[in-house]
Design a protein around this nucleic acid. Structure first.
Length: 117
DNA sequence: TGTATGACCCTGA
DNA sequence: CTCAGGGCCATAC
């Protein structure tokens, strides 16, 4: 049997809800989907997501605010290109939060919140 | 049935 | 900052 389709759909929905120009972490998406501690499943869900869903997969980063694909890979470049197009800035391979407080524990909240004026 | 792998995360040292 | 260790678990072989 494959993974419960309904769980995957909940994850896809959470990803689809990430606003343009903002990002979220795998763990954050998992929590948002009601699946705490299931970050790996989020990665899997994105990998098997139907192209037809046209998900904003590029807005999902790891807990350090970095792209999880190997640097130098085509996927890494593509993700970075898409984010750049949305105005997401990077610094030293990590998202430049440009907001007060970079506490990793609150990373998702910070990343998720609207940008400061 | 068992082992390995991976678009991950968190805590503690 | 890095590193190790444990958690998590669907898939592939």
């Amino acid at each position: 049997m494959s993974a419960d389709q309904r769980l995957l759909e909940r994850i896809w929905k959470a990803v689809a809800a990430i606003p343009p120009g903002r990002v979220a972490s795998y763990g954050g998406i998992a929590r948002r989907a009601g699946l705490p501690r299931r970050a790996r499943l989020v990665g899997h869900a994105l990998k098997v997501a139907p192209r037809s869903l046209d998900l904003p997969w590029h807005r999902v980063l790891n807990a350090r605010g970095a792209i999880s694909f190997p640097a130098g890979s085509a996927a890494h470049a593509e993700q970075r290109r898409r984010l750049a197009q949305e105005g997401v800035r990077f610094r030293n391979g990590r998202v430049d939060l440009a907001v007060n407080g970079t506490d990793v524990a609150d990373l998702d909240e910070l990343l998720w919140r609207p940008r400061p004026p």
